[in-house]
Simulated scan of single mutants.
Amino acid sequence: MKDFIESPYVRDMAKTTNNLYRHGWDERNGGNVSLRLTKEEVEAFSGTDKVLREIPIKFDASELAGKYYLVTGTGRYFKNMIDYPERDMGLVRISDAGNRVDLMWGFNDGGEPTSEFPAHLMSHIERLKQNPNQRVIMHCHPTNLVAMTFTVPLSSKRFSRTLWKMHPESIVVFPEGIGVIPYMCPGTNEIGEKTAAKMRDFRVVVWPHHGVFAAGDSLDETYGLVETVEKSALIYTTIQQQGGVILQSITDKDFRDLIKRFDLKPNEEFLTPDAATELVK
């Protein structure tokens, strides 16, 4: 039986965090990722059968009692994770009481889960209610999307329609649109609660002037979701750099054609244009 460090979960986490760093979305110790694993997936590898440490968490996660999460560590640089996975990430199990986690592997220098871990767990709870296959929460700082939060009104509908109009892939990849919350102090349960409430309807939630929280079935799928949102934001930014004059764009009829072609279930509220949300005519 192979040790857990040789598992595809550690490998994929290291690869994904390295890609996030190389994209410039997770500078210094910015960003965090958590991946839910099943008991069977964990027990298929050695070195995960005893509790190494008990780590308190400032959130009642009893709703997730017994679940395992591979999570990045607080204060860790994503650029280093590919070289030091057993130091910079850890496998934890939520205790029955929900007020601590049991460390089963990793954080071998005394580290702990990201300070945003309570916010991750809140979003995991909400996404599990929507889709039991959802197992990833990813927080990162996509440059062009963050820049938009300084110049575009902080409206979920306005952001969603603007990004949809930048590229036909957008409505295909995130037909529900994206959620936007007000600016809030990061690292608090309050921002976690606000984010989780939006996660009931959206897989991507924008933290203005900061970054995004995104949810998905796998690390690749979640990464691709953020990548698509950021590509549309990049196109929008490029248009503004070219003078911001739009002569033609994807229309509402084009949206309907895409919905029919790809059998989408879009956010009908966001499909209806109005003067307040039409940044891109």
Rank of each mutant, 00 (worst) to 15 (best):
P113R: 00
E193Y: 12
V71D: 00
M81Q: 14
S62G: 01
R127Y: 02
G110A: 10
K67M: 04
L258I: 14
I235N: 10
R135Y: 02
I171N: 15
A215Y: 02
L154G: 01
D12T: 13
D252Y: 11
I5A: 10
Y77D: 13
R161P: 07
W164T: 05
P208Q: 03
N131R: 15
K67R: 02
V33E: 02
G192Q: 05
M148K: 06
M166V: 15
Q130W: 01
P182D: 10
F78C: 04
T17M: 15
V51R: 04
S115E: 13
A196R: 00
R28K: 09
I82W: 04
K260E: 10
G211E: 10
V71E: 00
I178T: 12
K79P: 05
F270I: 09
V101M: 11
L234Q: 13
T38I: 14
A197V: 11
Y68I: 01
N133E: 15
M1P: 06
D49F: 04
P153H: 09
E176H: 14
N131H: 15
G90T: 03
G98V: 07
G216I: 00
M81E: 07
A214M: 10
K129C: 09
I5F: 10
R76F: 09
P142K: 02
K265N: 12
F59H: 07
S95N: 12
P208L: 03
I178N: 12
D12V: 08
S232V: 03
V205N: 01
K260R: 08
D26G: 13
A14L: 13
D220H: 03
G47K: 06
D3I: 11
P142F: 03
T277K: 04
S7T: 13
L70A: 05
D252I: 08
E43Y: 06
Y69I: 00
A215W: 01
A196Q: 04
Y9K: 08
A65L: 02
K194A: 15
T151K: 11
M138K: 01
M13T: 15
I94T: 03
S95W: 10
D102S: 07
V101E: 05
K58L: 13
G111R: 06
C185Y: 05
V146I: 15
D88E: 14
V204L: 03
F270V: 10
K253P: 02
Y84M: 12
D201W: 09
V146W: 06
A61R: 01
E126F: 03
Q130V: 08
M1H: 07
F213D: 06
P153A: 12
G192V: 11
D201V: 11
G216M: 05
L145K: 04
H167R: 12
T238Q: 07
R36T: 07
G192E: 05
N80V: 01
V152E: 04
V146D: 05
R100D: 04
Q134Y: 14
E230M: 03
P208T: 06
I82M: 08
W105H: 06
K15S: 14
M148T: 09
F213W: 11
I5H: 08
K129Y: 01
Q248C: 14
K15M: 15
H209F: 13
V180F: 12
N29H: 02
L264R: 02
K260D: 13
S46E: 12
L35E: 03
F107A: 06
M148G: 00
Y77G: 13
V10W: 02
P8V: 11
L154N: 07
S170W: 02
R100H: 09
P118L: 00
G224C: 10
T195E: 11
